[in-house]
Design a protein around this nucleic acid. Structure first.
Lengths: 206, 206
DNA sequence: CTAAAACCTGACTTTTGGGTCAAGTTTTTT
DNA sequence: AAAAAACTTGACCCAAAAGTCAGGTTTTAG
């Protein structure tokens, strides 16, 4: 049974993701995706009926993991653990899936013109849940009285930036590639500042 | 002397900025910019010789204020004041110039393909200066030992997000327009979390 | 008032890039 | 081994969007 299909489709999706990440939807040419993996353009159209459809498949291919990032807010019942893990997870995603993050960022930046409604629905649900969890912790005195949504916006942006705006990060770190050490520094700095900044009580103290 | 020129060029630059912000460079059509201000397309070409040139002028028209955001790091010699003012200023910019911020964000997101070298140079200088200032304050014990660059990345991202990703902000705040109250909440939350998170000593205590 | 300069624009050309297709080759199935 | 199915691709088509221009109108300078 043809495994060629799966293999090729995957190669195309990967190349497409990179192109869409670097040039946006409108700025991406099918022929560039094709060239990147040494295929004639027509071959792309054998596997994906249109640019729109290809883009949708790219979105689908990574959207689930991205939406899963708020999981720590469900898994733990203490802000120290949850915030720590959330930051770690989000930085990890920025490190390992920068292109996916960029495509997603592009989408949001332009008002989500291609995001299917069910994805948007899930996005709001995740955020609402995380926000409610934070409010509970605030009410229980486990952290300072801080607007949960604004904290989430800040966390989201601060972690996302290592993928979305990695050009700038590299520029200022004066490096060609953001190193493991840099990601580690980013994670540590964020965890330190956010936990202390939110007045999260140490877990053992509970 | 013809003031028509200045007036029209300005109207075009504004319309162009909004279009470029919402659709990116490649996704923006000259005819849409023209329609937005009820001009025939050819009129745009009377004032700007090409799409590229128009885009450059849009960048030039707002880049100076954006680069000025780090001024508080030069004006003050204490992290409490400097960080507070920087956050206020950046949120103010996100509030008042969301389109400029978006165009800039798009540029960075895609690896700054159109940013002139001198702008990039200024950008790194500003960041370096702010970073050095932070390090001095850390050395003088005015705040915790935190990686200055990563703190700056976080601040930049957290404030920028209210312009760049305002679609998402609106979605989660369940509002059509981010209100003054929301911007105020954002500013307060950020100042509170960051100052405390960085262990910035209160100014009077010095 | 008039000539020059600046401005305006409908109709046009050119370029770009998404999408198609017919005529192949390769792989799979029986 | 032969038929069917899956895959491949060069050459093409076409719509959209960038860009041009000739011949007009309006504004400005003297």
């Amino acid at each position: 049974m043809s495994r060629i299909r799966d293999k090729k489709r995957n190669a195309i999706l990967n190349a497409a993701c990179e192109e869409f990440a670097n040039h946006g939807y409108a700025g991406t040419k099918i022929v560039d995706i094709a060239n990147k993996i040494n295929l004639p353009k027509a071959n792309i159209y054998y596997y994906f009926e249109s640019k729109q459809v290809l883009y949708r498949h790219v979105l689908d291919s990574f959207i689930q993991p991205l939406l899963m990032a708020t999981a720590p807010f469900d898994h733990y019942d203490h802000p120290a653990e949850a915030l720590t893990d959330y930051i770690k997870l989000k930085i990890e995603i920025s490190k390992n899936h920068p292109n996916a993050s960029k495509v997603f960022a592009n989408e949001i930046l332009h008002g989500a013109p291609h995001l299917p409604a069910d994805i948007i629905e899930k996005l709001t649900q995740q955020t609402t849940r995380a926000s409610e969890k934070l409010q509970q912790w605030i009410d229980r005195g486990l952290m300072d009285d801080i607007k949960p949504l604004h904290l989430l916006f800040s966390l989201w942006a601060s972690t996302q930036t290592y993928a979305d705006f990695n050009w700038q990060i590299k520029l200022h770190l004066k490096t060609e590639r953001i190193s493991d050490q840099d990601y580690s520094d980013a994670t540590d700095t964020l965890i330190k500042v956010i936990l202390k900044g939110c007045g999260v009580v140490s877990q053992v103290a509970e």
